[in-house]
Amino acid sequence: MNEKTIVHIKNLNHYFGGKSLRSQVLSDINLEIKAGEVIIMTGPSGSGKSTLLTLIGGLRSVQEGSLKVLGWELYGASDEKLVQVRRHIGFIFQSHNLLEFLTARQNVQMALELHNEPDRIAKVKAEEMLHAVKLGNRINYYPSDLSGGQKQRVAIARALVSQPKLVLADEPTAALDSKSGRDVVDLMQQLAKEQGCAILMVTHDNRILDVADRTIYMEDGRLFKEVVL
């Protein structure tokens, strides 16, 4: 595993349910994500894509195999450790999940609360980030006053403001029309390239596959093929 590797997965298995009802959701996953890479993962629903994302994101405990994120081994990691790892990952969800009682700027700034930035600097960074996602004129708007695409852009700003080395995105365009979906993905790709940040994105949206450096396909808990575009 060299310096440029952000995620390194080896022989990862995962199961749901106990004893008699136990079913395998991930089988023998091997995957490597390098710095700055944009990877799109597709596959039918129920194939285990989300489970893999939650494992990489430190939101679930690893049961079998090795999973290294940003140099930390997550197999056998304590909850405390998982929380630490999460702070270095940007998350973007299908719905924006913004706190509706905070303004766009405050929502973005929440991500910096975890990094002990002085208030003044955090504010400036949050505003710069909102400018970067072309919402410089919506800084003090509440989410309820923003359109779906704008909200998702705030969510992107929130995920990227602390300059994570890895962004995990789960169908970020699913709730958006094609135009805003395209904008959002372009923005993600552009910012990720600028910051040298890797993106692992789950999507069913065929129109955005072209932003990927690599596309991987999952079915029945196996990473079936790897397509180099």
Binding site: F91, N97, R158
Partner: peptide
């Protein structure tokens, strides 16, 4: 959902 998101972010 929002609270879960905060937890995911590392809160």
């Amino acid at each position: 959902m929002e609270y879960a998101t905060l937890k995911a972010m590392g809160f």
